[in-house]
């Protein structure tokens, strides 16, 4: 399982150093959530990866009152769907937040019964999403990182026919 290739390691090194530069420039009012989520040991997922594979209409909301409207909107977004393909190692090919290139992500169970989607390894880490609801034709995710969550909201995926 390719977790950390030399190129991705370099990527994160560069990211870390540039981030430090940015931080030094803004010595107030920044907040970071790096390291806030240490994660928990992953257990086998109860949800099969192939349930995520397909074309999806995607919409998001921040307040529960907007949930129904958001579902209806997600259904209408199939003209510009988000496509999830099966990965070579049993995962699915998707984007992490703020990454322009997709990569293979994995469904990870946890002792609490929650299911997470993210890079292989620990579950409930900052890069993960939590699958909060799933059926044959839709699933809903919340971002583990409070930052991602506040920016991208709760995302609803509705399967396109």
């Amino acid at each position: 399982m390719p977790i950390s290739t030399p190129s991705t390691r370099r990527f994160f090194l560069v990211a870390a150093s540039l981030f430090t530069v940015a931080l030094a420039a803004c010595n107030s009012n920044q907040s970071i959530d790096a390291g806030a989520q240490q994660g928990v040991p992953a257990t086998p997922s109860k949800i099969a990866s192939d349930k995520l594979v397909g074309r999806w209409g995607v919409a998001a909301y921040h307040q529960d009152s907007a949930r129904q409207r958001t579902e209806a909107e997600a259904r209408r977004q199939c003209s510009n769907p988000y496509t999830i393909k099966a990965g070579q190692n049993g995962g699915v090919i998707m984007h992490l937040a703020d990454q322009s290139e997709p990569q293979e992500l994995f469904l990870k169970g946890s002792a609490s019964g929650s299911t997470y989607l993210g890079p292989a390894g620990m579950a409930a880490v900052a890069a993960d999403r939590e699958i909060v609801a799933i059926s044959d034709n839709s699933f809903t995710i919340k971002w583990v990182s409070p930052d991602n969550s506040s920016r991208y909201g709760t995302m609803v995926y509705i399967r396109c026919s």
């Binding site: 209409g57 995607v58 919409a59 998001a60 909301y61 921040h62 307040q63 907007a66 409207r69 958001t70 909107e73 997600a74 209408r76 977004q77 510009n80 988000y82 998707m94 984007h95 992490l96 937040a97 703020d98 990454q99 322009s100 997709p102 506040s150 920016r151 991208y152 909201g153 995302m155």
Partner: peptide, 21 residues
Amino acid sequence: PPEMIQRQPYLPRFMAGGPGN
């Protein structure tokens, strides 16, 4: 806008109005 979706394909195509929007 479409060019933003192209740049950040994981973005929701619709985000319900509210604080944070």
